[in-house]
Design a protein around this nucleic acid. Sequence first.
DNA 1: CCGCTGGTGACAGTTACTGTCATATGGCAT
DNA 2: ATGCCATATGACAGTAACTGTCACCAGCGG
Lengths: 206, 206
Amino acid sequence: MHTLEKSSKAPLPGLAAKKKQRTRILLAEAAAALFYERGYDATTIDDIAAAVEISPRTFYRYFPTKEDLVVAMGQTSLESFFAALEARPPAEPLTIAVQAAVDEALAPGWEDTDGVRSFMALIRDTSAFRARWVEEAFDNRYLLAAVIAGRTDGDPLGLRNLLIAGAITMAINTAVQSWADQDIEPRPAVYVQRALAELSMPLLAP
Amino acid sequence: MHTLEKSSKAPLPGLAAKKKQRTRILLAEAAAALFYERGYDATTIDDIAAAVEISPRTFYRYFPTKEDLVVAMGQTSLESFFAALEARPPAEPLTIAVQAAVDEALAPGWEDTDGVRSFMALIRDTSAFRARWVEEAFDNRYLLAAVIAGRTDGDPLGLRNLLIAGAITMAINTAVQSWADQDIEPRPAVYVQRALAELSMPLLAP
DNA sequence: CCGCTGGTGACAGTTACTGTCATATGGCAT
DNA sequence: ATGCCATATGACAGTAACTGTCACCAGCGG
């Protein structure tokens, strides 16, 4: 029920028609550029479509709504994070695995601190984007819970696994957002690791 | 920067013109009834306005967007939760205070389990509502962090307090949602308390 | 009684989205 | 190659969520 799927049924000739994937990326990039330049509200679907030279109607065959562009903008980060996490040895403690996955998959993309700040600023003051963004994060809890369930007991819908997944998701989001809001810390990765470290201790004193 | 404020500047004659508050509630109730009856998309602003006998234009003087109706629907619960939490003795451990506040303020409203299930179902399959709902929850972290900061050290923007606030928010949401999705547990309050209890132990093994 | 302030309604206009149908495009079998 | 078919695309029309603006209608302070 998610974002990146090549096609639902037939393997789809594969070769030629992955121009689709390219167009999708072009759209997301063009949209991002326009949003940064003149803001979300001041950018119309027509503008975005024109930038990629497709009809406005076709835009909606790539993205269900304008807001969904924001998930495309964070798409690759998310995918590589999951890939990195699943590549970690199953015996490894979850804390370490998660922290390592952040370092491997997310931190490199955060080298461009100005880029991260711009993105977080865009999300911060574009209500529609922020809503869609956190909704996506909330939904991803289920994906993450499934991965976690794969390394411990087997219930991806168990309350504890959902809580762990939720806490990790929330911690990463909070740390990055907090870092972007205050201009203090060196780089987001440090802040995120600190947040994850907190999860190894009880959040509420017993 | 939030939801329920009587007015920004002058005390506003107070007495007479708090019919405004009534109209707001009427709108939220009428909208809820229509949403449950025929669904979110099938309900237009014109329908809602007509049900309260105001002009569609006036609707937007009460709610900025259609989606914002969802926060009005959960409004009172949220307010009473914060009130209950702030009423707890400051010396009390946070875990206890939060669990007590849930029992006092939220659990009573959850007696009507069918109502809760309907509401969660509406949120579950109305994307616009779900997004706005979790956005609201995410934003409320700051409110909660401020309350928490008031009982311990004093930094409402400190990473640890934000994380605690986020974890509590997330735990409550996850538990209710999880309860509504699976038809197993007796009542949501039990499930929520169980989730909160998990926060007293490390979520990630050290 | 007059003017002022703030809520309201009536338009008109923009834009996000959707259904539908005709056309184009690229892969495949013959 | 040629013709066929599935799928992508574009053009068009229509709905509904918003927004700006203005004119109107309280109530109430002078």
